[in-house]
């Protein structure tokens, strides 16, 4: 997707009335280049949340508390055939590193923790506290 710099254009090519379409293809819900979903706020972060799938109970507290719509959700069926959300990751383009998700995470050993921005995910998971050391 185009960056704002690339989208900078001349007066004869700008959007009519500054009106922005959300979708390039509304039928297929294909997001337009004007959709902020394509804007990156990753450089706002000093620390990033790392998600540990192993410990997650899919309470979805992080999903509902995230102000930036960052949590990647997969729709799965539970044992009774009811659809439910499974957290599968974090969109790091949209995450500003506020840490609310970590704060609301209720598992005994948190399944979300903050790490310095440049920590590799694997490294972070290796450093995860255990029961005796949380």
């Amino acid at each position: 997707m185009a960056t704002p710099k690339e989208m900078m254009s001349t007066w004869d090519k700008i959007q009519f009335g500054a009106i922005l379409p959300s979708f390039e293809n509304p039928e297929k819900k294909l997001k337009s280049k004007f959709n902020s979903f394509n804007y990156k706020v990753a450089d706002w972060r000093v620390e990033k949340p790392v998600f540990n799938r192993e410990l997650c109970i899919d309470c979805d507290f992080c999903w509902v508390s995230c102000p930036d719509s960052c949590f990647l959700v997969e729709e799965v069926e539970n044992k009774r055939g009811k659809k439910q959300a499974k957290i599968v990751g974090i969109n790091y383009d949209l995450c500003k590193g506020c840490g609310v998700c970590v704060d609301v995470c209720p598992t005994p050993i948190k399944s979300l923790l903050m790490f310095p921005e440049f920590t590799e995910i694997d490294e972070a998971l290796n450093q995860w506290p255990t029961k005796d050391n949380k």
Partner: peptide, 22 residues
Amino acid sequence: TKNPQTYGAQTEEEWHFEFKAT
């Protein structure tokens, strides 16, 4: 509503002039 539009966006010094000119 199938083709949602955003009216009344904010344009600062990078864009405002072009809109007023058009």
